[in-house]
Nucleic acid binder design. Structure first.
Length: 418
RNA sequence: GUGGGCGUGGCCUAGUGGUUAGGGCGGCUGGCUGUGGCCCAGCAGAUCGAGGGUUCGAAUCCCUUCGCCCACCCCA
């Protein structure tokens, strides 16, 4: 027996209402904010991600699905969404459009990691990017978009965490300050953190080991080490968020895993305790375009995990609307009637109704049972008698009433019930 | 990569060494020779994840392996 590969999932019909709700909500919010949809390929030149995401990151070091195609090119399944969108921006000269260019996308994301609750090797993200504007009002706009999206979805008890991690000018000094703080305290760090001290010092701040958390509490704050421009950017952003009445918590220990972030970073988590719970996260990435070979172009955006939103909707017992129409089921007795039944169903569908033909070679009883199981509004019964008289028996499955109707008049009879 | 839990028909599950592995849901058929939902009956469907071992005898005990889940790492 074949099974879906580890860490992948079939999204079955019963879950589609959740997905539809999320996608429709996202699209509606984007429309209101003036963001347009973009679809990029599922794989890209491997170098795009190596350059964009950063060579030191776990994603690049051990999580990418990379392969050589038959022409010898190294390709990689998207491990995140932003790099592709930036590539498209540069490739299509979007710098010539009014800035910022506001985009959104839905895409599968592939990362080779051990699956667990809320984490998959293939998951799906709704992402938003605003490209070409460095002003903090754009950060605020993107955060507002994400916040409205989650609110419209009906997710409750969410917390928005924000922080600024500075830019290429002030971050090096902060990292030095951080090291200066931690070096004399190495003894107290967990094994992982001793390694981080040299490889990824910022990550010391969000270690979950209690002893490390205690140290992180006292560690230098990024906000105290920002350069003037970054400070001003941060203060203006906070002002906008307050004016927009978007509740947020400043989290000094919020850093992000991808190298390209500058200044603003943010994350949204539900109250529920757990680890794989971030449902939306993003930030500003002013150096990314240049890194990808384009002219320096600022950008800010976020990604949100659709599976995690489905998870949370289910946890809080939100019932998504399920607009499945109740079908009309055609019940045919005998081959002659079947031919007519198939054509009758076809006519109904062309008139916009949902119509299915019950499986043949079954008794009337069994076909009606089938209609019942499909939650049919009407059963249309066709047998030799009806064929002779040129009628169809229309059975109302809810009222358990039925009557003969001229074959030509069936649509009207049944039209309102779909 | 590391640690823990769990693997019995499509789904849920009983069964902790002893005759043909039991039940529920779901599926199909029948209970009217042209009438559903309830009820009743029947049928199909499991080499008890796989391999090896212990034993007169293994779903049950031991070993190995694979898979799933959860957690760490990291992330949406």
């Amino acid at each position: 027996m074949f099974r879906a590969p580890r860490g992948t999932d079939d999204i079955l019909p019963q879950d589609q209402p959740y997905w539809r709700l999320i996608e429709q909500t996202a699209e509606a919010v984007c429309r209101r904010f003036g963001n347009q949809r973009i679809r990029t390929p599922l794989f890209e030149d491997s170098a795009l991600f190596i350059r964009g995401v950063g060579t030191g990151t776990d994603i690049v070091e051990k999580e990418m699905y990379t392969f050589d195609d038959r022409g010898g090119d190294s390709l990689t399944l998207l491990p995140e969404g932003t790099a592709s969108v930036c590539r498209a921006y540069l490739e299509h000269g979007m710098a010539n459009l009014p800035q910022p260019v506001r985009l959104f996308y839905f895409t599968p994301i592939f990362r080779y990691e051990r699956p667990q609750a809320g984490r998959y090797r293939q998951h799906h993200q709704f992402g938003v990017e605003a490209l070409g504007d460095a002003d903090p009002s754009t950060d605020a706009e993107v955060i507002e978009l994400g916040w409205r999206f989650l609110a419209d979805l009906g997710l409750r008890d969410l917390t928005l965490y924000v922080n600024s991690i500075g830019d290429h000018r002030c971050r090096p000094a902060f990292v030095e300050a951080l090291k200066a703080y931690y070096l004399p305290r190495q003894e107290a760090l967990c094994q992982d953190c001793r390694g981080r001290l040299h490889r990824a010092p910022l990550r010391l701040l969000d270690c979950k080991v209690p002893s490390c958390q205690a140290l992180a509490q006292q560690a230098p704050h990024t906000l105290d080490h920002l350069c003037d421009d970054c400070t001003q950017h941060w203060q203006r952003l906070e002002g906008y968020l307050k004016r927009l009445e978007i509740p947020h918590t400043v989290d000094h220990r919020l850093v992000r895993g991808l190298d390209y972030y500058t200044r603003t970073v943010f994350e949204v988590k539900p109250q529920a305790e757990g680890s794989q719970v971030t449902i939306l996260a993003g930030g500003r990435y002013d150096g990314l375009m240049e890194e990808l070979g384009g002219k320096p172009t600022p950008g800010v955006g976020f990604g949100s995990g659709i599976e995690r939103m489905v998870l949370n909707l289910k946890l809080q017992e939100t019932q998504p609307p399920d607009p499945l129409p109740r079908p009309v089921v055609v019940v045919a007795l005998g081959e002659q009637a079947r031919v007519e039944g198939i054509s009758l169903a076809s006519r109904l569908r062309q008139n916009g109704l949902a119509a299915v033909v019950a499986p043949g070679s079954r008794s009337l009883k069994a076909q009606l049972r089938y209609a019942s199981a499909l939650n049919a509004r009407y059963a249309l019964i066709l047998g030799d008698r009806e064929l002779e008289k040129g009628v169809v028996v229309v059975r109302d499955m809810d009222k358990a009433e039925q009557r003969e109707v001229e074959a030509a008049g069936v649509e009207e009879m049944v039209g309102g019930g779909g």
